[in-house]
Design a protein around this nucleic acid. Sequence first.
DNA 1: TATAGAATTGACGTAAACGTAAAAGGTGCG
DNA 2: CGCACCTTTTACGTTTACGTCAATTCTATA
Lengths: 153, 153
Amino acid sequence: MKLVSPGEAAANSNDIPAEAGEELVRIGEMAKKYGVTLRTLRFYEDKGLLNPKRDGSTRLYTRRDKARLKLILLGRKVGFSLRDVKQMMDLYDPSGSNTKQLRLALDKSEKQLARLQKQRALIEDAINELSNSMTVVRQMLTERAAPQASAAG
Amino acid sequence: MKLVSPGEAAANSNDIPAEAGEELVRIGEMAKKYGVTLRTLRFYEDKGLLNPKRDGSTRLYTRRDKARLKLILLGRKVGFSLRDVKQMMDLYDPSGSNTKQLRLALDKSEKQLARLQKQRALIEDAINELSNSMTVVRQMLTERAAPQASAAG
DNA sequence: TATAGAATTGACGTAAACGTAAAAGGTGCG
DNA sequence: CGCACCTTTTACGTTTACGTCAATTCTATA
């Protein structure tokens, strides 16, 4: 079974697999395409997030795997754990309305949004505290002559 | 050697240690006072951030330990690692102007501030992406009747 | 055919800041 | 006197998402 040679994923030669049109790529291509490492792809698979076909032992990623990977990456970007992502994806059923999946996703999203907002607040707090401290330190530096036991000991 | 009995740290009885005025507290008091666990205090000590006296094997925290702990907690609040905190505190010299310490602190603070601002940006990004996704999902839910292969598979 | 470049599985390592359990020694109090 | 409570040290466990070998096999190409 031959497939697109590395470096010309689009320009397919002859000798196309069984079903035409299926854009199969190997792990190297896949990794480059989405800016992740091979380790990451194998890890995701190990965690049940991806499920590429095999040609012998070689992984072959399909269109579906790409879609799923995109979702994973989006999920991670917005701060979901891989577990969460998996949970949501596992609910996908191509032959239904996926109401449950969508509800779960929405539910998790609301919670995640709350977490993110909380985090933002914490970070802004930290920024303020840090800025204040910096002002104090700068002060101490400009008038460095008074070895006041400022704090540490 | 007796010390303040648990529950009345301020109201000192007689039988004060050697040097008067030294408010010695044991680990339990200390932990309650600063809202940390015993484990945390021991951990900080193990990492060289605290250095309480001992009465036999019992830890006795002094005023200095309290000042240092305050600094540690502030440091953690603004996102410094314990290593950073230690590095800065280790430069403290009660008999000097501590210019080096202050410069290091300022230097680290600037970097940390940058990191925090970057994080805030990332979080805001995430919040936006997530909000958008939620809008889409809500849409799909209200008009759930079109089992479009939205994404996952 | 030789060799460089992919790919595979397996498995330990990492980072941070503690949590938690175990086994045992001190201490005040009723 | 005995129990409850505090403290000690030691040391493995936790969490998350991979990184980093290692040893081996496959494959493409000159």
